[in-house]
Design a protein around this nucleic acid. Structure first.
Length: 596
RNA sequence: GGCCCUGUAGCUCAACUGGAUAGAGCACCUCACUACGGAUGAGGAGGUUUGGGGUUCGAAUCCCUACAGGGUCACCA
């Protein structure tokens, strides 16, 4: 869909069809697409769906429609029919006018806050392990979807829920008390999340060896787990935490603080941010209240052991636990509380988007159903933005097998590689150290973000650290390079883009029309990406457009062009391509450098 | 076992939501260039869209079926 031009064409086809055949098709029956390069024309109307209404074979209907269109509208200059496809050539003037209209810095972006308020949740890690490759996909995806929704006109609130309580935190705390000898991020120089993660691993190791001892003494595996002294310590610590024991709460705050400092450094490195943080320790009690009230209303039921369940068998699902027999909360409990709290705190909130891996699809199906049962009007206003796992050549990431790709390490590696390539190519010899660092970040992180976002979210994807991340071909650096080239051309032309004028009769060839079409369709691409919560739509569009530019550049002089009108038209194309692609890439969280 | 995803070139991914001869990148082969920025462009080769059936003017896309891979069905998160 080419924005204004296609909109105009759409109505022209509707009116002309009615005038020619006496019947008016529905909006949906008019299909307009880009004409394939092997045929002459710019836009193609698919006539098959209209043939029945026209009472003529597709070819005949297409021919009559084409003839009428050319006679009626001076901006449709030529038509051709291939089978049931009606190929139309639009006038040079209509293209030039459209390009003029697109020459604005905010091209593709809807007016700010012209649409409803949407909350986007992403990241939401546990506070016992450092962030890894999976979190990178999650964060880039959530952040990008937030930017895309904003560009589509929505007011966006970016949030995350921090799973800061529970047995997993106590494990790290116990291990640190036993083996830590008082070390801190300050004393070791280690990032806080890494330090705490190390003690989580240490706990697991000690736990395993105690189980092995137990089994050696003749216990069953389950008994050995229960008998493990270190596990008993963790449980008792959780109990003390829930009893608000001052010493435990103090340690909990200290160690979580270390983790947050570490996470914040990584988020800043990734270039993502949040408007508001929710903590499970704040919301789980609220969830319990809603579960109790649901029980009182007869929506849930209690088993003999005191646990509370919801029966979803009528909806084709199972029974689901909402509160343990000892009245402590499970994950679902706090999710109910958090969801309701968010709608209460944001009266304007229209919907919520949860960026969470596809292994939790069942969980969210259940959550949304429960919210509905509880009678929340916004229950249908929730969307689980599900994404596939990132897999390594040797299979899934397993922390126990040491195959986890650490987020900080990977980001550093990307920066390092980007810098190496820049230096090898001699591109940055006159850069200051500060500019070299900045460029390496833009290019290296851009490559990683693009790699993770160009794949449709729903699909699981393969990440091969050896060869997956490339700087050539369909990559962010390729796109960045061409945008830089555009900027360089405009600079050497020494023109003010907003003052570019050229005759509306200036002819545009196929390559120029392809560029114009790519620019003009960008606003609807943004809308499509917003509707589908899918950044890959943007990524693919940016790549197609910049690739077309790169090819165009090869055999079309721009600054050197001697015809004044053609030169300015090409400079305008150059400018709109640069703006369009920069805007698109910014929605993926990827910066375009000025030089590289 | 029940339910839900996925299956497209050697590999990693597209395909305007049912439209023309299924397209890119990587890898492989050939060519162009003293350059408005070569981190380049053009071309070649590579496909029974997992197999089989069906729906219709038309199917990678929708339906049925078989096979293959993944996820999920916890008083875990």
């Amino acid at each position: 869909m080419i924005h204004a031009l296609d909109h105009q064409l759409h109505h022209a086809v509707l009116d002309t069809f009615e005038a020619t055949f006496g019947k008016r098709p529905s909006q949906e029956q008019i299909q307009i697409q880009t004409t394939r390069t092997e045929f002459e024309g710019d836009r193609t109307v698919v006539v098959f769906p209209l043939a029945g209404m026209a009472g003529a074979p597709p070819q005949v209907a297409a021919d009559r429609l084409g003839k009428a269109l050319v006679e009626t509208f001076d901006w449709i200059v030529k038509y051709g029919v291939v089978k049931g496809f009606l190929n139309l050539t639009l006038s040079d003037e209509s293209w030039s006018t459209a390009i003029q209209d697109a020459l604005t810095d905010s091209w593709g972006f809807a007016p700010k806050n012209s649409k409803s308020q949407v909350m986007v949740e992403y990241s939401s890690p546990n506070t016992n392990k450092p962030l890894h490759l999976g979190h990178l996909r999650n964060n880039f995806l959530g952040y990008s979807v937030a930017k895309i929704l904003e560009a589509a006109g929505h007011e966006v609130v970016k949030v995350q829920i921090i799973n800061d309580r529970g047995i997993h935190i106590c494990k790290s705390m116990v291990a640190w008390q036993k083996f830590g000898q008082g070390e801190t991020p300050a004393s070791t120089g280690e990032k806080g999340d890494k330090l705490v993660g190390r003690y989580y691993v240490a706990f697991d190791k000690a736990f395993k060896s105690e189980i092995a001892e137990g089994v050696a003494r003749g216990l069953e595996a389950k008994e050995a787990e229960n008998a493990s002294p270190i596990m008993q310590e963790a449980r008792s610590m959780l109990q003390r935490w829930e009893d608000n024991d001052a010493e435990v709460v103090d340690l909990w705050k200290t160690m979580n603080g270390w983790v947050y400092d570490g996470f914040n450094a990584t988020y800043s490195d990734m270039g993502v941010s949040f408007d508001k943080l929710y903590y499970e320790s704040d919301t789980y009690l609220l969830g319990k209240k809603h579960v109790e009230s649901g029980l009182a209303q007869g929506l849930f039921f209690r088993k003999d052991d005191g646990s509370i369940w919801v029966d979803l068998t009528e909806d084709g699902l199972d029974e689901k636990l909402l509160l343990r027999g000892d009245r402590t909360a499970v994950y679902m409990t706090q999710d109910i509380g958090t969801a309701i709290l968010r709608f209460q705190e944001h009266p304007k909130l229209d919907r919520q988007v949860y960026t969470v891996g596809n292994e939790q699809e069942y969980h969210f199906k259940v959550l949304f159903l429960i919210l509905k049962k509880l009678g929340f009007v916004q229950a249908d206003q929730n969307h689980h933005l599900s994404y596939g796992m990132v897999e390594l050549p040797e299979g899934k990431m397993k922390s126990r097998e040491g195959t986890v790709v650490d987020a900080d390490d990977l980001l550093l590696e990307m920066r390092t590689k980007a810098r190496e390539i820049s230096e090898e190519l001699g591109k940055v010899d006159d850069f200051s150290e500060k500019d070299k660092v900045a460029l390496a970040r833009q290019v290296g992180h851009g490559a990683l973000k693009y790699f993770l976002l160009k794949v449709a979210a729903a699909k699981s994807m393969m990440f091969d650290p050896q060869s997956s991340i490339d700087f050539f071909g369909n990559t962010a650096p390729f796109i960045q390079f061409n945008v830089v080239r555009c900027k360089s051309i405009l600079k050497s032309a020494k023109v003010n883009v907003s003052e570019l004028h050229w005759s509306a009769q200036t002819p545009l060839d196929d390559a120029e029309r392809t560029l114009a079409a790519g620019v003009l369709s960008f606003p609807s691409v943004v809308q499509e990406a917003a509707d589908a919560y899918d950044p890959s739509v943007i990524a693919n569009h940016c790549y197609d457009l910049i690739k077309a530019f790169s090819s165009f550049y090869q055999d079309h002089p721009i600054v050197k062009e001697t015809d004044h009108n053609t030169r300015n038209m090409r400079l305008a194309l150059c400018a709109t391509v640069s703006i369009t692609v920069s805007n698109g890439m910014s929605l993926l969280g990827i910066d375009m450098p000025d030089r590289m």
